[in-house]
Amino acid sequence: MMVDACHLWLAMRKVKYMADNVTARGKKRLLKPFYNAGYIKAWLYLAPALLFLILFTYYPMVQVLWDSFFLKEYGAEKKLFVAFDNYRRLFADEDFITAVKNNLIYAIGTVIPSIVIGFGFALSLTQSSRFKNCIRSLLFFPTLVPLVAAAALWIFIYFPGIGLLDYYLAKLGIQSTDWLGDPDIALYSLMILTIWKNAGFYMLFFIAGLQGIGEEYYEAASLEGAGWWQKLRYVTLPLLAPTSAFVFVIALIHVFTHVDHVIVMTLGGPMGSTNLVLYYIYQNAHEFNDLAKATTATVLSVMVLLAISFFSIRTMERGIHYES
């Protein structure tokens, strides 16, 4: 959803740019920008996408914001206007605070490692050869497995004592670990699953990005006597900036919008140690009959997602300038 909004915004900027070019080619800017032909055409192109975005994205967002100021107590007949009381209740809820904290740990602990690993895979597998293609597909494989199925599989990997992981760790002399049943470990177990699942996906973007970098840059760098590290630092990384920014946004959004594994593996337990914000919203809306709290938490997380999206579009635009 957020990604759609980003795309739309980018498209609008581009259209404006095109429109400006069109009018600049003409003799004079006679009309106000909004009425000129290029602009109307641009809006017409945008209309279908915009219509659906308004219907299914912007309108629900406004509705959710509006609803967050009301409370319909479960079983009661009337909806009451409570101003910011839902927000007060939300921040007074220890479970919400725990979920936010968990989500932060989860974000930092999955986004950075999976991007770094994905980038590492990409670096070593950029050049095509039959062997490398094969490895690439293997590394990409976890992406093809739906998260629900992956979580169901990993339950057996994490099984204490007789699970795959403990079975092989035992051969190394490491005692069995309660991967999902120990409140101090469970969140990290989910993070490992997430990194496993996503690194290959990000690798794909990086490979595409790397293949877009011209060989001449590296030749030039070699002539200047740059070593491997210097090439990476001063050629690859800057030229890869748009890709990295994009992957970073995708990864961050993933963190807030995917909780299938929480539902399948832990139900947010033990003791709320694996509860994430989206699962907290789900629980309050459907299990705890506290729709108002769920709505309010939704408003906050949408705001965070919007902030992430707009912030990173800026960086992405900067990246695009760099490319041209």
Partner: peptide, 11 residues
């Protein structure tokens, strides 16, 4: 440990 029902029956 927080053993779930699947784990209990498997064990």
């Amino acid at each position: 440990s927080i053993t779930n029902s699947k784990q209990v029956s498997t064990d």
